[in-house]
Amino acid sequence: MAGSILASVGAELPRHRAVLAAALLLAALCLMALAAPAFTQHAPDSINLAQAGSPPGLDDAHWWGTDRLGRDVFARTMQGLRVSLLIGFVAALVSVAIGVAWGVLAGYSGGRIDAAMMRIVDILYALPFVFFVIILATLFERGDVLVLLAAIASVGWLTTARIVRGQTLALRRREFIEAARAMGVPTGQILWRHVLPNVAGPVIAYATLTVPQMILYESFLSFLGLGVQEPLASLGSLISEGARDMETAPWLLLAPAGCLTALTLSLNVLGDGLRDVLDPRTRP
């Protein structure tokens, strides 16, 4: 199954030039974020008031300038990118896991359990769920990354749950599942061996689309001052900081804003492309 997913991705994706470009852009961003400490001499949190607020340029290798405290914007932005990427990926992983579990359970149980579980998803979909995230984020120690992760991941699973449920429901009526059931294969094993591998394709596609969502939620909270706290920075908190000083030092806003946009754009385009290839419902 994994092989066939790779095969179909390998065969179809290169046809979409936009998707290929997005993948390259994403790879470049990740590489840049990870490798940045190796090729800039500045630490993201080293304060140098003498050089505060210098614009982008080649002086002292502050390529993207410095902030109010003289910290290097490039180093800070790269650190924010790392934090955003990390939180985005981990939160996406968690929420996809919740979504898959919820969807498989609902779809495989069918009947009233299914109806009740999906009704809950419908209700949550309709609510301004971010309110709960904000409450959760303010409940405990501010800036606790684990709380932040939990709060963000709790919103991301709804779409995955819907998609997985639909797939599972369709699979349940297929012969090989019915045969396994008739032979008395335990439910857990049916789910693990037969259902999960068959929903893997669409799940991968929607997981890719969940990552930028999670990154945006994290940045949203950080922008409101409820996310990661100083001296740690994420793209959201950097944008929030930059917006305050944009009149005198626009690069403080533009550097993290540009990175965030490039990141979400590439992930969205990549996810859409994967979905076109891997989700049987969108396949022409």
Binding site: G242, T264, N268
Partner: peptide, 17 residues
């Protein structure tokens, strides 16, 4: 694609700038 990737907290400050 661009508008979906641009969250309000990026677009707002940039437009304002």
């Amino acid at each position: 694609a661009l508008m979906i990737a641009l969250p309000a907290f990026v677009l707002g400050p940039v437009l304002s700038l």
